[in-house]
């Protein structure tokens, strides 16, 4: 255990060591290194894929493609429904089934 005076002396020495701090002005050729780093930063381009995907024209194209696909899908879907109804009607005519007939098996059995 150190004596109080001894500790105080050491603390003072430590605090005074800040006064003996010697300046450091740096290595030479800093400008060359800085310019090289600046050039590297300006030359560094984003990754090819990211760069390509982030292009506004590509994003617009993808959006339009989605819209057209959606329109085509719904349009096609409704024409399929129409065709289905037409087939059912044709079948009904072929088997002489009217929409009033509720029991198909009886009707077929009668014939």
């Amino acid at each position: 255990m150190m004596a109080r005076d001894e500790i105080e002396q050491k603390v003072e020495k430590i605090l005074q060591s800040a006064d003996s701090f010697s300046r450091y002005e740096g290595k030479p050729f800093l400008l060359t290194r800085v310019m090289a780093a600046v050039e590297n930063k300006t030359q560094a381009k984003p990754a090819f894929v990211t760069h390509l995907i982030l292009q506004p024209y590509l994003l617009t194209f993808i959006l339009l493609l989605n819209i057209f696909s959606a329109i085509y899908f719904f349009k096609n879907n409704s024409s399929i429904d129409q065709n289905r109804e037409q087939y059912i009607d044709q079948l009904a005519i072929e088997f002489s089934i009217s929409s009033n007939s509720y029991d198909l098996t009886t009707l077929i059995g009668e014939e």
Binding site: Y24, E25, G26, R33, V38
Partner: peptide
């Protein structure tokens, strides 16, 4: 250069680190 390097040195207390930091400071300034 002196001002920036010495300021960084006063914080990191390592000459190599202070040099690297000074370089970064000037790049950011640019």
């Amino acid at each position: 250069q002196g001002l920036v390097t010495n300021t960084c040195y006063g914080f990191v207390m390592n000459k190599d680190d202070a040099d690297d930091l000074a370089q970064e400071v000037f790049v950011e300034a640019h």
